[in-house]
Amino acid sequence: MSRFRVGDKVRVREDWPEQRGPVHIRTPHYLRGRAGEIAALLGVFPNPEDLAFDRPAPRLPLYHVRFRPEALWPEPVSGETLLVEIFEPWLTPL
């Protein structure tokens, strides 16, 4: 079961697990805390944060999330958008 549907507004969790010890994170730093929109559910995949340590990995929904660049960068940009694969636990509803 996946929690979000296409078109849902979401926010990426503003969390920095890198500060707490050895981790492997697939959510880029520049998206933490930023708002986007669900573009697609890509499937269900084992959590890379566990696979990277050879631990048992629960399968998680993976979404394509669309971001507007003005939500990410200080400089003005036009006519661009960003699509990024993000696992469900990194997303909160907006």
């Binding site: 920095w16 890198e18 500060q19 050895p22 994170i25 880029p28 730093h29 520049y30 933490r32 990410l72 960068w73 200080p74």
Partner: peptide, 21 residues
């Protein structure tokens, strides 16, 4: 494994995490 942010960047990032750096 992580480095402090540069001005205008996020508060924290790992050094391989290069988007927009």
């Amino acid at each position: 494994m992580a480095v402090a942010a540069e001005p205008g960047d996020t508060p924290f990032r790992a050094h391989h995490d290069l988007g927009g750096v």
